[in-house]
Design a protein around this nucleic acid. Structure first.
Lengths: 204, 204
DNA sequence: TTATGCTTGTGAATGTGAACACAAGCACGA
DNA sequence: TCGTGCTTGTGTTCACATTCACAAGCATAA
């Protein structure tokens, strides 16, 4: 499988695999076949095999994939083997929920700074961090943070993004219902809960 | 374009279009071409035209799409022309953020009930609703609610889903990092913020 | 009324990802 | 040491989605 371009869809599934392997590890299972993994994840076995094989031969024929070492491999493929620091912009209700969301640690993410523009929030503690004034956003560059999570109102999102560009941020998880203009070097993932919910009635 | 199966990807984009048309309406623009809409949404013009044409000919050649009536059409395609009631399970930080998220109203969603199992939360007001005990979950059936938003810890999610099945819920927006077993008649959309964030470092 | 300019709607072509089917190959036991 | 059973890795096939390219057709103005 050398000299192959890796499909975007495969990358999108890698965190799923990582989460599954991490969970299997806590269940003290030390090996899993593509068949059983596929059942858990609601996927087909060949897809899992192909996805993983893009990055090398992790499995053992007749046995399956070794849980612990495969997890480690995926972590390093996704560059999650080192702690990835992230900045959270917006300390409202949603920001607070994100700051205390336990799921990030499984992937090695660390919310290393929180910013807001509301004077009453600055200085208060949210999760393990003290909320900083948005005017100090260049801290992000000084702290060598390259990821940002955007939990601000939609009409403020673009102006925050413009600031983040100057801070050398390379990836943004955007939770505002809006489209962001960014330089090509920046990767944005936007999630709008209402939009996701919007498809469901169609299928009922 | 008659007798054609409508691609899932097209359905997934319809809420995007609806949001865009809704916003254009508030900007008092009464017509938009696929070219300009594509710029806003970071899509290609032919894709927009093809997507919309699956449901009929909404546009006017030489002019573009009439904002107001196209929005109305999409709303009725997605069954969002009538208010869709949704139940929110989990009144923690994330639940509270969702309950007050203003974006739902644009799609005609109405959070009609909130449930939790934490005694201290029951009876308190979150958003416009009073939190009910999870034991009263059959209210969902009585209120004729068919959508649920799940904002509970991952280890509680499956048991809540099993209850929702009995309440005739047909669609679930799941915010817990876990896979749910549901009857085939039920549609589930799962969002895990950590997983979405998980792909970003790969691209940096 | 007719010509012009612009944009839609859509068959066909292209591109991308999923699924299949089977050879390759490890582990375990006889 | 050899055979058996099971599962991986992958070339190929198939299905789905995107993009192209152009005819169809409305609106506006001469």
């Amino acid at each position: 499988m050398k000299y192959h371009k890796i499909p975007d869809e495969t990358i999108r599934r890698m965190p799923m695999y990582l989460r599954a392997f991490s969970m299997l590890k806590t269940e003290h299972q030390d090996t899993i076949s593509s068949i059983h993994l596929a059942e858990r994840l609601h996927l087909k076995p060949p897809q899992i095999r192909k996805d993983l094989s893009y990055f090398g031969a992790f499995g053992t024929r007749g046995i399956g994939y070794p849980v612990s070492s495969t997890a480690k491999q995926i972590r390093s493929i996704l560059k999650l083997n080192i702690t990835q620091k992230a900045a959270l912009i917006g300390a409202g209700r949603l920001g607070a929920a994100i700051a205390e969301y336990p799921g990030f640690s499984m992937f090695g993410f660390d919310i290393a700074a929180i910013f807001d523009n509301e004077p009453s929030k600055i200085g208060t503690k949210v999760g393990k961090n003290v909320v900083e004034d948005i005017s100090k956003i260049s801290m992000i560059r000084d702290l060598d943070i390259h990821l940002a999570i955007l939990a601000v109102p939609a009409d403020a999102a673009q102006s925050v993004v413009d600031m983040l560009v100057g801070c050398h941020v390379k990836g943004i998880l955007n939770l505002s219902p809006c489209y962001l203009v960014v330089p090509r070097s920046m990767k944005v993932v936007t999630i709008d809960l209402a939009m996701e919910l919007g498809t469901l009635p169609y299928y009922m």
